[in-house]
Design a protein around this nucleic acid. Structure first.
Length: 659
RNA sequence: GCGCCUGUAGCUCAGGGGAUAGAGCAACGGUUUCCUAAACCGUAGGUCGCAGGUUCGAAUCCUGCCAGGCGUACCA
C-alpha cells in the first residue's frame, strides 16, 4: 500500500476537467510537515488559481468538494492561502495496518512494470588490499541492489574488479626480483601485498626524482609571478585593483600548494634514501618504472610466463577481497573484471572508427563529444587501451547478455567527467544504447577528523579489514558495558557478546555511511557511528531488540497471534503516529530509489524507531488496559519489528534479539 | 582558465518552491515500585556564505560575488 500514490490518484480524478495534465500538480501532494495540518497536504491550489485566474482558496474548495476520498480521510480542510489538508481516518489506518500485518512484504507494493538493472559497484583493484576508499561504493551499491530487487526489479550485481592493470605488472616484477619464496608458500596473499608495496614505492621513488626538478622550476616561475604581481601599483580603478589583489592571493595559494607537493615528494625520496635496504634495492633497479610497464605490456600481449604468473596470483587476490565481502555480507551475481573484456577491446575501437564516431588525434583514437572539452580516449598513441575502452566493451557485453533497462555505476564523484564522456560516447555508438539509462551514482570522499581524506596518523590509507576490526572492538566495549550494567546482572555470554559486537559494529559502520547524503563528503568517526541514540544503526537495532524482549517477557507466540487477525486499535496518539509511519514504508522505498539515495531510507527507519520509542514509553503493552488493546499493541510491535528488520535488511544490516 | 560539487545551530548532518527551517551530539533541566534508562520528555541555541533577481510564497530556482573540495588529452 502506497498511501501517497493512492491520494494522488484521487486528486487526479478530482482535477479532471480543470487541467489537461495534472502530473505537475500531483507532485505537490505530500506528507504534512506539521501534524496540525493533517497527515497529508495538497499545495497546488495557489499556482493553479493563478493559472486559472481565480482565487486560490476557491480553487482549493472546489477541488476538495470534487475529491472522492471519504473512505480514506476525514473531510478535507482548506487552510491558509489554499492548502488542502487531509487527515486519514483512524479506522482506515487500523485496517491498513491489519493488511500490512498479513503481508509477507509488510505492505510494500511491487514496482510496475519491473525493470532490469545492472548495478556495478565495489570494483577494487584486487592486487592490493581493500581500503577505506572502497567502503562507500561497496555499501551503497549493495543497498541499491537489494532494494531494487525487493521492489520486484531484476537486478544483476557486477563487481568490475581491476585485475588486469599496472598493479599486476608490479607484482610480476616483484615476483621475478624480490620474492621471498617461503613466505609466498606459506602466506601468499601477504607476500604478494608486500611485493606490490615494495615495487610501488620504488617506482614512486624514481617518478618523484624525475618530477622534482620540473616542480622546482614551476615553483620558481610561480614565485616570480607572485613577486611581479605584488609589485603592481594600485591604479585607483576599484575593479581592476580588486582583480589584481585576487590574482595575487590565488598566485600565493598556488605557490603554497606547489611547495607542499615538493615537500611531500622530497620526503618520500628521503624515506627511501635513509632506508638502507630499500635504497640498495632502488640502486639495483634504476629502470623499474619502465620495466614494470614492460611486464604489464607483456601480460596483455599474451606472454606465456606472465600469463601463467597472473593466473597463479589472481585466485589469492580474489580470496583476499572475498574475506572482506563475507564479513560485510556482500555478494555479487557476477564478478567480471577488466581482464574479461580484454579480447573485445580491439573490436570496440575498430567499430567506433568504422562508424566514424572515433577519430585519430595526435596518434590516439578519440571520441570527441559535443560540449565536452576533452575527448574520451580509447587507444593511446602507443597502441594500449584505456579504461574508457574497457567501459565501452562492458556496456556492449551487458546489453548483449542481460538487455538491461538501466546500468548504475556506483563510483566516487571524481570520475564524473569520465562517465559523462563514456555515456555520451556509448549513446552515439548504437541506437539501442541511446535508450539505456546510464547513471553515475556518484558519492563523496570519506574524510578524517581533520577534514582531509581519511588516513592513518602516519599518512597511509586505512585498510578495510582493520577498520572493521576497530568498529567491532568498540562495539564490543559498548555491548559489554551495557550488559554489565543491567540491574539484574549480565545476561549475555562472552561468545554471544562477540557475535552481537560483530553485528553492531559492522552495522554502525555501514549505517553511518548510508545515512549521509551520498553526494557530499562524509566525516568518519567511530564515536558518532556507535552512539546508542540518534540516527544510528544501533538505535534501530535496540528498538528491534526491545520488541523481541516484550514478546519474550510476555511469553507471546507472535506468529499465532498474527493468524488471529485481531482488530487494531489506534486510540492513543502514539499508537496512531506509529501506525502511520509504518504504513509509509512503501513511500520511503520509492523515494529512496527515485534518486538512488539510501539516506531517505535511513531517515524513514529513524522515524519509525523514534515513534516506537515514544509508543514504548507511553503505551504499556503487556499491561495494556484491556485484552483487545494488549493484542492490538502486540501486533503494532510485530509490524514495527518486521518493518525495521526488513528496512535494515535492505541496508544490509543485521538485527539481534538481545543487546 | 573552464567544468562539477559543497557552504544550514558550537560540532556532525537532514531538508532542496509551501505554513513557525529539523535531527543527533555537546549544554541545561526533568522522568526508573512500570515490557531493555543503550530510552523518553523538555529548555536553550539559526542573517540557511554574501548581494541582487524570479514568484502569491525562496534555505530551495536564476545571476553575480566570496570561501572550500574535486576534475580538467593518452592512470584507473
Amino acid at each position: 500500500m502506497n498511501i501517497l500514490a493512492e491520494l494522488q490518484n484521487r486528486f487526479r480524478t478530482a482535477l479532471q476537467g480543470l487541467v489537461d495534465d495534472p502530473t505537475e500538480l500531483l507532485a505537490m501532494v505530500r506528507p504534512s510537515q506539521d501534524p496540525k495540518f493533517g497527515d497529508y497536504q495538497a499545495n497546488f491550489a495557489m499556482s493553479l488559481g493563478k493559472r486559472l485566474g481565480r482565487p486560490p482558496r476557491d480553487v482549493a474548495t472546489e477541488v476538495a468538494a470534487r475529491l472522492a476520498i471519504d473512505d480514506l480521510c476525514d473531510p478535507p480542510e482548506v487552510a491558509g492561502p489554499g492548502f488542502i489538508n487531509l487527515r486519514l481516518k483512524t479506522g482506515w489506518l487500523a485496517g491498513a495496518v491489519s493488511t500490512a500485518l498479513a503481508s509477507e512484504r509488510v505492505g510494500v507494493a511491487t514496482a510496475d512494470p519491473p525493470r532490469t538493472y545492472v548495478v556495478d559497484y565495489s570494483s577494487p583493484n584486487v592486487a592490493k588490499p581493500m581500503h577505506v576508499g572502497h567502503i562507500r561504493s561497496t555499501v551503497i551499491g549493495d543497498v541499491l541492489k537489494h532494494t531494487l530487487r525487493f521492489l520486484g526489479h531484476t537486478v544483476i550485481s557486477d563487481n568490475h574488479i581491476g585485475d588486469w592493470g599496472t598493479q599486476f605488472g608490479m607484482i610480476i616484477y616483484g615476483y621475478k626480483h624480490f620474492l621471498d619464496r617461503p613466505a609466498y608458500e606459506s602466506r601468499s596473499v601477504e607476500e604478494l601485498g608486500r611485493l606490490y608495496r615494495v615495487v610501488n614505492r620504488l617506482v614512486g621513488y624514481y617518478a618523484a626524482k624525475e618530477s622534482l626538478p620540473k616542480l622546482r622550476e614551476q615553483i620558481e616561475k610561480q614565485r616570480a609571478a607572485v613577486a611581479a604581481q605584488a609589485q603592481v601599483v594600485p591604479s585607483g580603478d576599484k575593479a581592476a585593483d580588486k582583480n589584481a589583489a585576487k590574482a595575487l592571493r590565488r598566485g600565493e595559494s598556488n605557490l603554497q600548494e606547489l611547495e607542499a607537493s615538493r615537500a611531500a615528494l622530497a620526503a618520500s625520496i628521503a624515506e627511501i634514501d635513509h632506508d638502507p635496504h630499500l635504497s640498495k634495492l632502488a640502486q639495483a633497479h634504476p629502470d623499474i618504472g619502465r620495466d614494470v610497464l614492460a611486464e604489464t605490456a607483456k601480460l596483455h600481449q599474451g606472454d606465456a610466463e606472465n600469463l601463467k604468473l597472473w593466473s597463479e596470483f589472481l585466485p589469492a587476490c580474489l580470496a583476499d577481497i572475498e574475506r572482506i565481502y563475507q564479513r560485510l555480507g556482500v555478494t555479487f551475481d557476477v564478478t567480471l573484471g577488466e581482464s574479461f573484456y580484454h579480447d573485445r577491446l580491439a573490436g570496440v575501437v575498430d567499430d567506433l572508427l568504422k562508424r566514424k564516431i572515433a577519430t585519430i588525434s595526435d596518434g590516439a583514437v578519440c571520441v570527441f563529444n559535443e560540449g565536452q572539452a576533452a575527448p574520451l580516449i580509447i587507444r593511446k598513441q602507443d597502441g594500449a587501451f584505456l579504461y574508457g575502452t574497457t567501459d565501452l566493451a562492458t556496456i556492449q557485453y551487458r546489453v548483449e547478455t542481460w538487455s538491461p533497462d538501466a546500468v548504475l555505476y556506483v563510483v566516487d564523484h571524481r570520475q564524473g567527467l569520465h562517465f559523462e564522456q563514456l555515456f555520451a560516447a556509448a549513446k552515439r555508438w548504437k541506437p539501442e544504447y541511446a535508450r539505456l539509462e546510464l547513471q553515475h551514482i556518484s558519492f563523496g570522499t570519506v574524510l578524517g577528523d581533520d577534514g582531509r581524506p581519511f588516513k592513518t596518523r602516519s599518512g597511509d590509507t586505512v585498510g578495510l579489514w582493520g577498520l572493521l576490526d576497530e568498529a567491532v572492538r568498540r562495539a564490543h566495549e559498548v555491548v559489554s558495558t551495557g550488559d554489565d550494567a543491567k540491574p539484574g546482572g549480565p545476561e549475555i555470554s562472552a561468545e554471544r557478546r562477540q557475535q552481537i559486537a560483530e553485528v553492531v559494529g559492522i552495522g554502525a559502520l555501514k549505517y553511518a555511511d548510508l545515512a549521509n547524503n551520498r553526494t557530499s563528503d562524509y566525516t568518519f568517526s567511530y564515536d558518532r557511528m556507535l552512539a546508542m541514540n540518534g540516527n544510528t544503526a544501533t538505535y534501530m537495532q535496540y528498538a528491534y531488540a526491545r520488541v523481541l524482549s516484550i514478546f519474550a517477557r510476555g511469553g507471546v507466540e507472535i506468529g499465532a497471534l498474527r493468524e488471529q487477525a485481531a482488530a487494531i486499535e489506534l486510540g492513543h496518539p502514539a499508537e496512531r503516529g506509529l501506525a502511520l509511519s509504518l504504513l509509509q514504508f512503501s513511500e520511503a522505498l520509492e523515494q529512496t530509489m527515485a534518486e538512488y539515495r539510501p539516506n531517505f531510507l535511513t531517515a524513514y527507519l529513524f522515524e519509525v524507531a523514534n515513534r516506537y520509542s515514544t509508543f514504548f514509553e507511553q503505551c504499556p503493552v503487556l499491561k495494556a488496559p484491556s485484552e483487545a488493546s494488549r493484542t492490538s499493541r502486540l501486533l503494532l510491535c510485530d509490524l514495527t519489528a518486521r518493518t525495521l528488520k526488513q528496512g535494515l535488511a535492505l541496508l544490509r544490516i543485521d538485527v539481534v534479539d538481545k543487546m
